[in-house]
Simulated scan of single mutants.
Amino acid sequence: MANPPATATTSVDKPIVGSLSEVHADADRPLPAHPVTTVMEARDLNVFYGDFHAVHDVNLAYGRNEITAMIGPSGCGKSTVLRCLNRMNDLVTGARVEGQVLYHDQDIYAKGVDPIAVRTHIGMVFQKPNPFPKSIYDNIAYGPRVTGMKVDSMDDLVEEALRGAALWDEVKDKLKQSAYGLSGGQQQRLCIARTIATKPDVILMDEPCSALDPIATARVEDLMIDLRKDYTIIVVTHNMQQAARVSDRTAFFTARPDETTGNRTGLLVEYDLTSKIFSNPGDKRTEDYISGRFG
């Protein structure tokens, strides 16, 4: 599959100094410049809400068993792009997607593709923990039940999902209790367990730690790195330190204002290995954002 074209326009001569350039998830697992195996790819992706052009010509390739972070200032389109990857924008009135989103070379927006089926392969964890008003057990079992998954033992599946989300030891003796009784960090890990219970291939995460305290955030970040062995993870985050800690590759987005209307259209500026983005980016706009000059 073709890799997206380079978008950098300005060379940055010296590494950015600071803590962000010192810790990277890819430091102990050297990766090639482009993903060896592409699981998902956005090609010439444009998103509109009515007449508003929200995202302009995004080209991105997401690699198997990699964590890709999408960063940028508010209103740059990164969450809009994330929602396109499992057709969540279908639920937004007036939303229109142009271009292609390929999953294993199949366009998920092609005629006849069932968005519900798409979401069984491409799960999503939202910004705020959103457990169902059910027991811990029934939260995990819900997805397999409603999708008609063939399961030999639901008990085993629930345990497997909770273990996968590093939550089993904390809840194994209260599976029939309400999920609302869990702490915020536990609820978010429960939502991750609920996502992986349906055996997806890709996990999308939209600001998964923004509502959590530092200790819970660290648990979720450790979990993301562990889950990378089995899943492709794509995460939107405003926390640049988090992107530097957990991701293998980083895509930086910015927003371009329309001179006539003032509306801001999101566009991809640069996409590269996280270590490169945070130490020696190829575009001055990336350097300015990373170093805190704007954003």
Rank of each mutant, 00 (worst) to 15 (best):
Asn3Arg: 08
Pro4Val: 14
Ala8Asp: 10
Ala8His: 10
Thr9Ser: 11
Asp13Cys: 09
Val17Cys: 00
Gly18Lys: 02
Gly18His: 01
Gly18Val: 00
Ser21Ile: 03
Asp26Arg: 07
Asp26Met: 07
Asp26Ser: 08
Asp28Arg: 11
Asp28Met: 13
Pro32Gln: 04
Pro32Phe: 05
His34Met: 12
Met40Trp: 08
Glu41Ala: 15
Arg43Asp: 09
Arg43Gln: 15
Gly50Leu: 09
Gly50Glu: 14
Phe52Val: 15
Phe52Leu: 14
Ala54Arg: 01
Val55Asp: 00
Val55His: 02
Val58Gly: 06
Leu60Val: 15
Arg64Gln: 15
Ile67Leu: 10
Ala69Arg: 12
Ile71Asn: 02
Gly72Cys: 03
Ser74Ala: 06
Cys76Pro: 01
Cys76Gln: 00
Lys78His: 01
Ser79Lys: 02
Val81Glu: 01
Arg83Thr: 08
Met88Cys: 12
Met88Gln: 14
Thr93Pro: 06
Val97Phe: 04
Gly99Gln: 10
Gln100Tyr: 09
Gln100Gly: 09
Tyr103Val: 05
Asp105Phe: 08
Asp107Ala: 12
Asp107Gly: 10
Asp107Glu: 13
Tyr109Gly: 11
Gly112Pro: 14
Asp114Trp: 11
Asp114Thr: 06
Ile116Thr: 15
Ala117Met: 06
Thr120Trp: 13
Ile122Leu: 04
Gly123Tyr: 00
Met124Ile: 13
Val125Gln: 04
Val125Glu: 05
Lys128Phe: 15
Asn130Gly: 13
Asn130Val: 15
Asn130Leu: 15
Asn130Pro: 12
Pro131Cys: 13
Pro133Gly: 14
Lys134Gly: 03
Ile136Trp: 08
Ile136Lys: 03
Asp138Met: 07
Asn139His: 13
Gly143Ala: 12
Pro144Val: 04
Val146Arg: 02
Met149Ala: 03
Val151Leu: 05
Asp152Thr: 10
Ser153Lys: 08
Met154Lys: 00
Met154Ser: 03
Asp155Leu: 11
Asp155Pro: 04
Glu160Pro: 00
Ala166Phe: 10
Ala166Lys: 09
Trp168Arg: 02
Asp169Tyr: 01
Val171Glu: 07
Val171Gly: 03
Lys172Glu: 11
Asp173Gly: 07
Ser178Pro: 04
Ala179Val: 12
Gly184Leu: 11
Gln186Arg: 05
Gln187Thr: 12
Gln187His: 13
Leu190Pro: 00
Cys191Pro: 06
Ile192Val: 15
Ile192Glu: 01
Ala193Ile: 06
Thr195Phe: 05
Ile196Arg: 02
Lys199Leu: 01
Pro200His: 02
Leu204Cys: 05
Leu204Gly: 03
Met205Thr: 02
Ile215Ser: 13
Ala218Asp: 10
Glu221His: 03
Ile225Pro: 06
Asp226Thr: 11
Arg228Leu: 09
Asp230Trp: 03
Ile233Glu: 02
Val235Ser: 05
Asn239Lys: 04
Ala244Val: 08
Arg245Phe: 00
Arg245Ser: 05
Phe253Thr: 00
Phe253Gln: 00
Pro257Lys: 01
Arg264Thr: 02
Arg264Glu: 06
Leu268Asp: 01
Leu268Met: 09
Val269Leu: 11
Asp272Ile: 12
Thr274Ala: 14
Thr274Cys: 11
Lys276Ala: 15
Phe278Trp: 06
Pro281Ser: 09
Glu287Ser: 08
Tyr289Lys: 08
Gly292Leu: 03
Arg293Glu: 00
